[in-house]
Amino acid sequence: MKNFTKGVLFGVVATASAVAGAVFSFKKKVVQPIEDQEARFEENRKLANRKSHAAHHG
């Protein structure tokens, strides 16, 4: 029974670490680039808005 308990605990820890690694990898490969792109777009919008206002203030 002692070996079974150790095996179950090891399996739970290994599974949890595999899931955590998958979530971290997904975040780095999919979510982070989208957030970076949105931040770039927002910065470009701000700059364009400033240029537009500056051009019309003569």
Rank of each mutant, 00 (worst) to 15 (best):
K28R: 12
K27D: 09
K6F: 11
K28L: 14
K2E: 14
N44M: 14
R40A: 12
F24T: 11
E35K: 12
G21N: 01
S17Y: 05
S17P: 06
K46Y: 06
F24K: 09
L47I: 11
H56N: 08
F4Q: 08
V19W: 00
R45T: 07
A54F: 12
A55T: 07
T15M: 13
E38G: 09
D36Q: 06
K51N: 06
R40G: 01
K27M: 12
A18E: 00
H57N: 10
A20S: 00
K46Q: 09
V31A: 04
D36F: 05
G21C: 02
A54L: 10
A16N: 01
T5V: 15
A18V: 01
A22T: 08
R45D: 04
V13N: 03
D36P: 04
F10P: 04
F41Y: 11
G58V: 14
N44C: 14
H57Y: 10
A54G: 04
F4W: 04
R50F: 15
K51C: 08
I34G: 02
V8S: 02
D36W: 02
V8C: 00
I34N: 02
R40P: 05
H56T: 04
A20F: 00
E43Y: 11
G58R: 15
H57T: 08
A18M: 03
I34M: 03
F26S: 08
K51A: 13
H56Y: 07
K46G: 06
E38D: 14
M1I: 09
N44P: 12
T5A: 11
M1R: 04
K46I: 14
A16S: 06
E35F: 11
F10K: 10
I34W: 04
F10W: 15
H57R: 13
L9D: 03
N49L: 14
A55D: 02
V13Y: 01
P33C: 03
H53V: 10
A48D: 05
A18G: 05
F41V: 11
S25M: 12
H53N: 09
L9V: 04
L9G: 08
S25G: 14
N49T: 15
A39T: 01
R50P: 06
N3F: 07
E42T: 14
A14Y: 01
